[in-house]
């Protein structure tokens, strides 16, 4: 399989005054094209820090990050913008939809920055909203839809420029279990049917159970990296049961 992400001794140190925080202490990691990965770990273990670097929103303070074979650390700001625009779809815990802007316009946003012409833009945005099940909410404002629907708009937006990689930092963190399952099914579909590489940060083992590979962090380092064993799910849970039930159908 083609590797799409490779990290070599990746470090991130935050400096605030005299205090230094080593958020990432030399991460070695390879993710192949089409993988479905969950990142877990205690609060403050460095998951978000890693995601921000993977999403080219932040730069590492040490080590190397190769994205699609290119070294990211030596890219200019405008090249990074371009990578964020074309290569990566980011989904946030707090949705980050542009307020007072319709679902359609929100989804169009990445296409605007990709200089896609207006007609094509709104056609594609409408199709994407249709795909995430919001075909009847095109003109709704973010404050007029539920949390789960907001996250679906955000996912449609992340998919706008057909990026190969989807990064989601606690995408179900603000959602109830029912909406969480729906969102995870969307991600699973993207990974299985469209071949997207999907990396998800989560605190909930049930959510991680949707993926194929679980990487666990502690204190800025990877402490475990294992394949998901679908036949023997860990302690029974409603979410997993619900998901398993659906898959069984």
């Amino acid at each position: 399989m083609n590797e799409i992400i490779r990290l070599e001794q990746l470090k991130k140190t935050y400096r605030s005054g005299a205090i230094q925080v080593e958020a990432l202490k030399g991460i070695d990691l390879t993710v192949n094209q089409g993988e479905y990965v969950a990142i877990m770990g205690a609060s403050g273990s460095g998951k978000s820090t890693l995601m921000n670097i993977l999403g080219c929103l932040d730069r590492p303070t040490g080590g190397r990050y190769y994205l699609g074979g290119h070294d990211i650390s030596c890219q200019s700001d405008s090249q990074l913008s371009r990578i964020r625009n074309r290569m990566i779809g980011f989904v946030f815990q707090s949705f980050n939809l542009i307020p007072r802007t319709s679902a359609l316009k929100n989804v169009e946003l990445p296409m605007i920055y990709a200089r896609i012409p207006p007609r094509e833009r709104s056609r594609r945005a409408a199709a994407l909203l249709e795909k995430v099940g919001l075909g009847d909410r095109l003109e709704h404002m973010p404050n007029e839809v539920s949390g789960g629907q907001k996250q679906r708009i955000a996912i449609a937006r992340a998919l706008a420029n057909r990026p190969p990689i989807i990064l989601a930092d606690e995408p179900t963190g603000n959602l109830d279990s029912r909406s969480s399952v729906e969102i995870m099914e969307l991600f699973s579909g993207l990974n299985r049917k469209e071949g997207n590489t999907v990396i998800i940060v989560t605190h909930e083992p049930d959510i991680a159970q949707f993926t194929d590979r679980i990487i666990t962090f502690r204190d800025g380092a990877i402490i475990s990296d294992r394949k998901v064993d679908r036949d023997h799910p860990p302690a029974a849970s409603k979410v997993a049961a619900a998901a398993a039930g659906r898959e069984g159908v």
Partner: peptide, 16 residues
């Protein structure tokens, strides 16, 4: 500010 951050995350360049 958050909107600007979101726009940048979605690929807006400094010039945009």
């Amino acid at each position: 500010t958050r909107e600007i951050g979101t726009r940048k995350a979605l690929g807006a360049r400094t010039g945009d």
